[in-house]
Nucleic acid binder design. Structure first.
Lengths: 229, 229
DNA sequence: TAGGATTTGTGCGTATGTATT
DNA sequence: TAATACATACGCACAAATCCT
């Protein structure tokens, strides 16, 4: 109740919040290829940028390493992990199955705010079809992913799906650019997927939403593999 | 090729190995209830015991915190996380589905050494039915789990299943003891499950093995819930 | 081949927060 | 209520490892 108590709890919250914020921001940069695979990250530079010291930043990088997004090598540096096609294939297969599970495990019927947000994203996606860049596409994809994740109330499922998403999406984008995938077509297909999801939501069929997502993740990976051959 | 190169790579491996060893050991103690929920762990004590300083030990505890096994509170200590029934239920449901997936995602047909090891465990399990303690039961369960995990070649699936296993098993054991579950009966049922798995393996039916495991995980949780009422 | 520059890993003193007396 | 004890969080200095000249 005293001012010191209020301050201390605020600070305690801020400590954890700052950690999560730094983690989310660096993860975002990796996913958007601001830090492409192979990029060397500097503990001191990042610490200075976020206004802290090496110790808290090392904790963030350690978490990213446990998630498989970076790899720290003594005397070398902290490197953004590179594509591993075999691992990517396994991660994609697992993502397919877990995405389908979101329709069966603790499905959460969306409220009005959810629908409003989805409609806003669909509109934004339509505007992006013609003039969108790969980076904008990925940022948009991330927003949609985070929104649709709310359709399951199973927290550990959310966590796993989130880890898999960030681990696979950036490699998909890297490979898609290299394979010269038609990103405009990808935009159109994604937009069509979102409209299908909205229709399924209007029927209140969350299992259908999950299967639509599964189908599109599967097809997206198939298109990429076809291009690579 | 030089001696210095060989030494350096050995040392580099040892650093990572020591981290993994400390992590696995502490995780094991938590799962075996040597460190029960609510127990306060001391950074300095653990560091001294493992012959290192606080910094590497803090990295281990941070990883355990990210995995949800402990929680560090500034000014309080590092506490083994307590039972959260709602979370436990979600984790169990997810474990069910992921266990079934092991039969479909990159199934690995076991070799002779695997069968030999399974038979050894089945024999040990039979001896343990009459005289086994809860701690021995859990240690035995952990060994079986690690062995059966090899039946899928999908590495991210293994990782997720391993995390969920350690997060749920210790809480199950805590609750089972409190609810005065008949552990001898649990032994017998577990032994029967292992025999069923061996029969399925002789048929080379890994999907059946997965479904047998799923069924027993489900029934085990049902028995616990029934006792709690 | 050797040495210096750079990077991560480690150890420890201090700051900060909490609980108890 | 205040002070003391004790825990984690932080920052810095140094060790160890790698790479490049």
């Amino acid at each position: 109740m005293t001012s010191s108590t209020a301050t201390s709890s605020d600070v305690a919250g801020s400590v954890r919040d700052r950690h999560d914020a730094m983690h989310a921001e660096i993860r975002r940069r990796i996913c958007l290829l601001d830090y492409p695979p192979g990029q060397r990250l500097s503990e001191v530079s990042l610490a200075e940028e976020f206004g802290t010291s090496r110790t808290p930043m090392r904790r963030v990088l350690a978490r990213l390493e446990d998630e498989g997004l970076v790899q720290s090598l003594h005397g070398v540096g902290t490197l953004v992990t590179d594509a591993d096609i075999a691992a990517l294939e396994q991660e994609y297969h697992l993502r397919l199955e877990l995405t389908e599970l979101t329709g069966r495990l603790d499905p959460v019927m969306p409220d009005g705010a959810f629908i409003t947000e989805l409609d806003r994203l669909i509109t934004r996606g339509a505007d992006m079809i013609e003039a969108g860049t790969p980076r904008e596409f990925t940022a948009f994809d991330m927003e949609v992913f985070q929104l649709l994740l709310q359709l399951t109330g199973n927290l550990p499922l959310r966590d796993v799906l989130e880890r898999l998403y960030y681990k696979t999406k950036r490699i998909w984008l890297t490979a898609a650019i290299e394979a010269q995938l038609d990103l405009h077509q990808e935009f159109r297909i994604f937009h069509h997927e979102l409209e299908a999801i909205r229709i399924a939501l209007q029927s209140g069929d969350l299992d259908a939403v999950a299967h639509i997502q599964r189908a599109h993740i599967s097809m997206s990976f198939q298109r990429l593999r076809k291009k690579r051959d």
